[in-house]
Design a protein around this nucleic acid. Structure first.
Length: 274
DNA sequence: GCCCAGGTATAAA
DNA sequence: TTTATACATGGG
């Protein structure tokens, strides 16, 4: 990987690819929006950003050296070698090859843990366009306006609310789950910060003390919010995999690439269903 | 109108 | 422990 800071921002050249559409629209995140010119605008840790590609060069508009080193490098998982991961994945499980090849250039973002938890609570029994709508309304109503984009509201902000305060979100039965999660996180009963390191079984168990958090939401939180690549929603994934003829694949075989495999396969299934 | 969405809580068997 | 059903809402 090489990068340089120019007038445009941070310009990054990856050897292992970065497809903006596959990365931002694969269902791992819900708040990057495509612009008319094909660039994407999003907000991370209160920092608004526009990202676009100039040939193979990824440009993070306006990013200086400090932003790149302290934020974007980690957020976009710049230092992980996705070519190597893909190769290893296909060696271990040839059945997923078609999924991997059809969804090139996905990078697993390192999102804010609370945002990921909250987003995937909202995602349950829901479709992606509507998830995006609810998350957007959540931010517009309770986040802070940063340069025209709204930040994701903190757990502390949401913890003090009543269900009727969230009625505008039209989140349905998930409303009380959001409030329960906000309460447990803000009171420290669920400690997201320690989950970067803690044994994954403990993390999963702790997350599932939240009403409305089952295996799937817990695993998605660990993968997308805490960058735990070994996370894997076994129950849900296997059900999908069996239906899509990935029946030979086991989570055990995929090991630490499991989470990435999951993302590839979900994305693949979305592609073939259209 | 109808089906169902990257699930989970709850009540039964 | 396993299986069935409701859940709020709205996209396709």
């Amino acid at each position: 990987m090489e990068y340089k800071i120019t007038q445009r921002g941070a310009e990054i050249t990856l050897s292992d690819g970065f497809d903006l559409k596959n990365t931002f629209e694969c269902g791992q995140c819900f708040r990057w929006n495509e612009n008319a010119d094909g660039s994407y605008t999003g907000i991370v840790k209160g920092k608004k950003a526009r990202v676009y590609k100039d040939g193979e060069v990824v440009v993070i508009e306006g990013s200086d050296e400090n932003d790149f080193e302290t934020l974007w490098r980690k957020y976009f998982d710049i230092d992980n070698d996705y070519n190597a991961i893909k190769k290893e994945m296909m060696r271990l499980c040839p059945q997923v090859s078609c999924a991997v090849e059809s969804t090139d250039g996905i990078r697993i973002l390192s999102q804010d843990p609370w945002e990921a938890l909250c987003s995937f609570i909202i995602s349950q029994n829901n479709n992606i366009p509507r998830i995006r709508g609810i998350v957007t309304r959540l931010c517009e109503n309770f986040g802070e306006n940063c340069d025209g984009e709204y930040s994701f509201p903190s757990a502390e902000t949401l913890a003090v609310l009543q269900p009727e305060d969230l009625s505008e979100l039209r989140a349905g039965f998930r409303t009380r789950y959001i409030i329960d999660a906000a309460g447990k996180v803000s009171r420290g009963e669920v400690c997201l910060k320690k989950m970067y390191e803690a044994p994954i079984d403990e993390c999963r168990k702790e997350l599932m003390t939240i009403t409305g958090v089952g295996v799937k939401v817990a695993e998605c939180t660990l993968l997308y919010g805490l960058h735990r690549m070994e996370a894997f929603p076994i129950d849900v994934w296997m059900k999908k995999a069996l239906a899509s003829d990935f029946s030979g694949v086991t989570p055990e075989a995929l090991g630490k690439t499991a989470g990435i495999a999951q993302q590839y396969i979900f994305h693949y299934m979305r592609v073939i269903s259209n």
